[in-house]
């Protein structure tokens, strides 16, 4: 284990990011920092590159230029460190229809964290999947599957969370519960970057705005907004 994080540390820093897709510039000259204890919302209309940006930060997408730093060092020198410290939950979260929620969670965290089965069971109870924890996920509703995927957040220890459309298919109560969870996480010093179409009721949120490229050319701004 290394030193506890300070508020001033830059976990991830992007400089001059530029990404093109199908001959269209999604964003260019995009620079921002992800620091501990902040929640950043990536905003923009459909097709503006929100998911692409998160995938670039996670290290899944290679079709971009610019530089990404991890704790001040170029990221490509520290891939194992970055992979261990950044949790990415895409809108396809890796839930197998033939496995039960418990087996799914086990398989998903097996390579990242040593989590006792008891903790996994408790996490499923907490997201309200307890009674279904031994039913194949194919028989659950879309919202319940999303809950299974989000149950990981209850014990995830990565300092950076990248969440793509985490609220999809969740009911009002579940959305509120996830928001509370993220707020707690940020208070403890975690950094959360998320895309969502629903406006979260959270304080001190930072924003990265990606513009629709159609009308006025690519407009990209990283705004360090408080509120």
């Amino acid at each position: 284990m290394t030193e506890p994080l300070q508020h001033a540390d830059h976990l991830l820093r992007a400089e001059g990011l530029e990404c093109e897709r199908d001959g269209r510039t999604l964003f260019s000259d995009l620079s921002f920092s992800i620091v501990p204890g902040t929640l950043t919302r990536v905003e923009g209309p459909n097709g503006s590159g929100k998911t692409t940006l998160l995938r670039i930060l996670a290290g899944l997408n290679d079709n971009w230029s610019g530089q990404v730093y991890w704790c001040g060092q170029p990221r490509q020198k520290h891939w194992d460190l970055v992979r261990r410290n950044v949790l990415y939950l895409g809108h396809r979260p890796g839930i197998k229809m033939l496995l039960t929620p418990l087996e799914n969670l086990q398989a998903l965290v097996a390579g990242r964290q040593q989590v006792p089965g008891r903790v996994l069971g408790q996490a499923l109870e907490q997201v309200g999947i307890g009674p279904w924890s031994h039913v194949p996920c194919g028989q659950l509703s879309a919202g319940q599957k999303r809950r299974v995927a989000l149950a990981r957040l209850l014990f995830a220890d990565e300092p950076v969370w990248l969440l793509d459309e985490a609220f999809t298919a969740l009911d009002v109560d579940a959305v509120a519960a996830v928001e509370r969870l993220l707020e707690d996480r940020v208070r403890q010093g975690g950094a959360v970057v998320m895309t969502t179409h629903h406006e979260p009721a959270m304080q001190g949120m930072r924003r990265i705005r990606l513009g629709g490229a159609g009308e006025q050319g690519p407009v990209t701004r990283a705004v360090g907004e408080v509120d």
């Binding site: 290394t2 030193e3 300070q6 261990r84 410290n85």
Partner: peptide, 11 residues
């Protein structure tokens, strides 16, 4: 300067 309870993890 306040320390946080979350740390960078050693893989």
């Amino acid at each position: 300067q306040q320390s946080l309870s979350i740390t960078v993890l050693d893989p």
